[in-house]
Design a protein around this nucleic acid. Sequence first.
DNA 1: AGGCGACTAGAACGAACGCTCTATCCAGGG
DNA 2: CCCTGGATAGAGCGTTCGTTCTAGTCGCCT
Lengths: 198, 198
Amino acid sequence: MNPANPVQTTTTGTRDRIVRATSRLLQRQGFEGTGIKQISREAQATLGSVYHFFPGGKQELAAEAIRHGDQEFADLLRAGLDSTDDPAEAITACTRLLAEALRDSDWQDGCPITTTALETVGRAPVIEQAVTEAFAHWRALVEEKLHGAGIALTDARELAATVINTLEGAELAAQVARSEEPLHLTGRHLARLIDTYR
Amino acid sequence: MNPANPVQTTTTGTRDRIVRATSRLLQRQGFEGTGIKQISREAQATLGSVYHFFPGGKQELAAEAIRHGDQEFADLLRAGLDSTDDPAEAITACTRLLAEALRDSDWQDGCPITTTALETVGRAPVIEQAVTEAFAHWRALVEEKLHGAGIALTDARELAATVINTLEGAELAAQVARSEEPLHLTGRHLARLIDTYR
DNA sequence: AGGCGACTAGAACGAACGCTCTATCCAGGG
DNA sequence: CCCTGGATAGAGCGTTCGTTCTAGTCGCCT
């Protein structure tokens, strides 16, 4: 319990496995379609462990998994945005990364939080909070890039919101159609839109 | 059974109530979150009636409900698109209608098919088929409008895809944020994008 | 009048759900 | 050496799930 001590590895190991497994399952089958027992099985943990770490039950666990997905998506976004100085090119780089990840997962891994967000909107405040924060987080990353490239702050903020929303929609379309095209197309259109602001 | 006869009212009444109730429930709570018993309760029908009209069970029923939602959304889209000749203005009219409908339902009724689409992608072919057709249907409506307004066919087709995808993303954002703003913002950005093609 | 098919009605099935509970394990401190 | 408390383990609770099944009602055709 000494805060100076390194965290014990077994504990964080189990908790972390549970969160990761939950995040992936929510991404692929949504909140209602994922059972706690399936999570514990997939995470190689027992039911007891799950409720030990998440006494708030499924909702608390899902909220934590959403935060994990938030970070995951933010990492991909950052990788795309940092790949070039040009803001329009940077967005198309993001769509390219998203398309690759989606294809490589056999069209299974779309946005890690959208399905759960839609299922629980207006009925699970703990989860909704995590979702709201994730979207704000992603918008902030894009906004910073656009503003840093010389776009006026208000324009950058508004564009960032549309960029994130459009990426969400394109990812959904790509997943349903099992095709990278909606994402690539969206990349081109977003780049064109951004270029009208310079 | 004479095809010239008017359809018997009671039969279509019950079937129709079941489809409508299913459509609304899928829109609000998704596929996994909606039970057949809840549907029969809400539709004022019995379990027997549900399985009588939809022997394929939950999936067949959901597919039919998706087709219903397809028509519903298409009607709204047409209303927006027909409200003016200018294609860019027409799209913002659509975002306005969507924002109103969402607000008036207390942020409950987003896109009627997205949640179910995400939950069942890659695991319920009957539903996926209906989803694919709905998206294609909506794209076609927008494409026709854009092409009719003088935009080249290829550009119109590509733009239509992005328009639909972006509307999906904006509706999701608006629902989560309980705000009309993402939709209005998207309307302005899409209009701007479309205007670059003229 | 009789029968037939469309439709309604809901009890019952096994399986799975989220969650609670008790029992056990085990490392670190007294 | 035992004690303590975090962590693991899984049986079992009551409920609901999707589906099946049998029984009954009703209107229409011959």
